[in-house]
Design a protein around this nucleic acid. Structure first.
Lengths: 330, 330
DNA sequence: ATTCTCTGCGAGAGCGCTCTCTCAGCCAAC
DNA sequence: GTTGGCTGAGAGAGCGCTCTCGCAGAGAAT
């Protein structure tokens, strides 16, 4: 048994296909009586429009691609920031009746697949998440002519419009807070240097320290707990007397707490720790983590809006301020 | 400028549309020379098949719906288990060249949307994640005739085929471990009673305790840290002398650790704690968490396989064993 | 030489929908 | 009574693809 078509509904309602189409698509040039008859027929037959046929003629699909470019290392770490973003973006898209096609290419073949898919006109727009410097995908996607918006400042040569949190400002606020607590040797655990969020947070840290005439001390992580723990070890080796650390993600801060605990240091008495993101876990660490909160929902909302409004290729970026959340780790 | 069509490629290669179609779809009844010519034309024009047109005639779309039914409370908590599952499922689907359409209905309207979408033939199959007892969606989806597979034992009256971890066995192993460590008053923090994973883990806990003639003591959570912390408080009130707790999720175990710490109890000296899931965070708690690992990747792989193979509506469920990972919290 | 397979390509219908164009019918205006 | 505008419905042409069917031509069998 096949699904009913427009034709079937038209026959049942005793009108033409065109009229049924008008009713289904909400045209206002239809006689209310006929409209009612058609709607009844739709109801009785359980008619649901075939989207393939529709998008074949309209050239639009009603779905948006959400492309998450993340190498396996971090993909398999369970960073809640991702799921938060994916969730909010998805929610916002559903609110405007768009479908979300999730794509997480983890190999060059996967990237080629995504590129083909987008070029094939399967989606009306693309949201880029978690871009890395060397990634050729953004440029490729821009070339397809499909609207692209980036979540987070793009770092590749391709420059799609984007929306982001004020990473630099957030880092400055974190360091400022540590200074105001009387900390003198403030180190940082930075994220991967091919990601803009990591670069911007590092820049904010450096700016403020050099403004206040202090030396900076950085170790590089990749936003995961493991890397945070390792980076913390290295920092302690480089400067056993450090009294504060600003981690560019909560996960890395958690790793740092772990290492500090193992090294016998107390937090915050010996070393103060600030994270970034304000994930749920930050409230449950020992001690609860001071961190910088980003407005995930606002960013998601804005990105969806940009895409739905048909954003200009070189529209100005939208940047949201962050909040410092002070807990017991500082 | 429009995208090139089959027709254009055919013209360029000097063959018919049918032949180009054959080449593109990998038919083997094409002369190698002609095939090469066609492929060259495809390359030169940058031809990408239009999927709307294709699925209009084939009646298949190449995409699979991933439906996550979760009320806002937990959606906004950042449970890494979800992202793990979504990630692995998505990876497996990409491996078999299927698209992932992510749907997270958070309201009745959203559910209706999902139902319409699936009934509309937009997806070739549906994967259900995180089902709750009262949810009418699974039954509605089954009625559409589209293949449905559930991740986790379904708890509603609708009974799609499913794949799951051995939750009962995992819980038994956890409790057995606590008993073997000499613990006598073993409490549990259970998940929401409308979810099968919660019910099965609770059942495993109860079975083993009653087998060994011990009393059980349960508090109910909802798989989040907050609820774990609250449940732990209640358990301590109910029985201040308890010496072990089995939490039905790592997140709740983390909440329990938090409450235990605040109550001045040492883990594992005073109270031993076991979690479930083995999320990344379990290795970084203080102390690192003993937990039950589920084979997330295997489950994902199996589900995708079931869907791709065109699973029978009443196929037997597939259950994977779990592993007890012993760390310092017991 | 004739018939009979068999291989490989082209012709053409049709998937279900939208949208333009046309036209019937009605009322107002002259 | 005739014309003109206007509203609302139908006819029909495609959107780009797949797939069945038919047919040409090569080679094998008689």
């Amino acid at each position: 048994m096949r699904r009913p078509t427009l034709e079937a509904v038209a026959a049942r309602a005793g009108v033409s296909r065109a009229t049924v189409s008008r009713v289904v698509n909400g045209s206002d040039t239809v006689n209310p009586e006929i409209r009612a008859t058609v709607l009844r027929a739709v109801e009785e037959l359980g008619y649901v429009p075939n989207s393939a046929a529709r998008s074949l003629v309209t050239q639009r699909t009603g779905s948006i691609g959400l492309v998450v470019s993340e190498p396996p290392a971090r993909v398999f770490s369970d960073d809640p920031f991702f799921s938060q973003v994916i969730r909010t973006v998805s929610q916002e898209l559903e609110a405007v009746d768009r479908q979300v096609v999730l794509m997480m290419p983890s190999s060059p073949a996967g990237q080629a697949r995504v590129e083909r898919y987008v070029a094939g006109g399967h989606v009306d727009g693309v949201i880029l998440l978690s871009q890395h410097g060397a990634d050729p995908l953004p440029a490729a996607l821009l070339r397809t002519g499909v609207p692209v918006v980036s979540h987070g400042r793009p770092v590749s040569t391709a420059r799609p419009p984007y929306c982001d949190a004020d990473n630099t400002g957030g880092a400055r606020a974190a360091v400022q807070h540590l200074l105001s607590r009387g900390r003198r040797r403030i180190a940082t655990i930075s994220g991967p240097p091919d990601m803009s969020a990591a670069l911007d947070r590092l820049a904010g840290y450096r700016e403020l320290l050099s403004d206040s005439g202090r030396r900076s001390l950085a170790a590089i992580g990749d936003f995961t707990r493991e890397s945070g723990a390792a980076a913390m070890s290295q920092l302690l080796e480089d400067d056993p007397d450090l009294d504060a650390v600003f981690a560019a993600s909560d996960l890395m801060a958690i790793g740092a707490l772990y290492t500090l605990r193992k090294s016998g240091r107390r937090v915050p008495e010996d070393v103060a720790v600030v994270g970034f993101d304000d994930i749920d876990a930050a409230r449950f660490t020992d001690p609860p983590l001071t961190t910088v909160r980003q407005p995930i929902a606002e960013v998601a909302k804005t990105i969806v809006q940009m895409l739905v409004d048909g954003v200009d290729d070189k529209a100005d970026p939208v940047i949201f301020p962050t909040d410092l959340i002070v807990r017991d780790s500082t």
